[in-house]
Design a protein around this nucleic acid. Sequence first.
DNA 1: TTATGATGTTTAATATAATTGTCAATTCTG
DNA 2: CAGAATTGACAATTATATTAAACATCATAA
Lengths: 183, 183
Amino acid sequence: MDIGTKLRAIRKQRGLSQRELAARAGLTNGTISLIEKNKTSPSVASLKSLLDAIPISMAEFFSNLEETALSKVFYRADELTVVSPTGDQQVTLRQLGNAEAHALQVLHETYPPGADTGPELLSHDGEEAGIVVQGAIEVTVDGVSETLNAGDGYLFDSRLPHRFRNTGKETCIVISACTPPSF
Amino acid sequence: MDIGTKLRAIRKQRGLSQRELAARAGLTNGTISLIEKNKTSPSVASLKSLLDAIPISMAEFFSNLEETALSKVFYRADELTVVSPTGDQQVTLRQLGNAEAHALQVLHETYPPGADTGPELLSHDGEEAGIVVQGAIEVTVDGVSETLNAGDGYLFDSRLPHRFRNTGKETCIVISACTPPSF
DNA sequence: TTATGATGTTTAATATAATTGTCAATTCTG
DNA sequence: CAGAATTGACAATTATATTAAACATCATAA
């Protein structure tokens, strides 16, 4: 398996010393030395601690996957790209970055009074969640409706049919997130 | 981590007894019992032997750690559970639902003036994104800092070291999302 | 019932992982 | 350069994973 050299490679790459990594992981430098020289096979608990401290996931560690190219991190308010899933909506959806390159899609949603995503099935894989920031909105998920006010939130499996309607008089703003991106 | 129940689930699914798996892996049934009941954390060498005998790869084993149990959909503002990743922060993190059961973690974050997540690496797998709802906050990702105001957002790979600091005089509120949940 | 076989659990003994303390080699700093 | 700090490695001790064997439970059959 040779997890030793792999661990060492990753640690060096991040510019960490054995002692520093040990401190973060709650282990000792000696242990890391032994592991890296394959003189011992760490418990998965220990390895998990080390990988958490680097940080890198177990799955990633064991699946030789390489670095993901990263791009833009910060987005000014006017840089959120407007997306319109259904075309003619009054609903304004403003998206953070381009969803296709990411596992996470975050939207700034504006619902003027009367806005309605319509009854059509907005179903897709993954999960969907959000928190109301301003105003109120009626959310219907799998036939169940609730009116959420500022501070309230929702979280559901995206495969359930869902609908958003602003039945109030004030414009409603919701920050939502999907994974994976639905459009 | 609970690799115990995961291992047991896979073993049962393949119709293997502890003894039979033990024989194939060159271990003992007692060891498997202890591992499955999380009474011990096996060495990666032992776990590798077990997974080879099933057979299933390490990467596969650790990438399937997610369960799906969905229930609650709507959350009132006072139902958001306060989580404190670092313990003594002034930062208030209020979470939608319980992250462990979901692929998506959404937080309502409150940063009073001076609040700081600290320089330690808040790193984990997946992606992380958010939009500032009120106030302003200085976000540092991989050494690069920007001050984001209401309406601005961020989106980055969670493995990059990151830090949030409210350097202004107004309390800052951010709605953020991670996938998968980081704590 | 009693026996037989297969299952998962527990316990004392043993093997091994992890810590502690220390060392030489290296890299900073003045 | 000297001195201090940092690095990775090693031996001895401590902690823990693993073993081997016994135990309990649930079947099914004689």
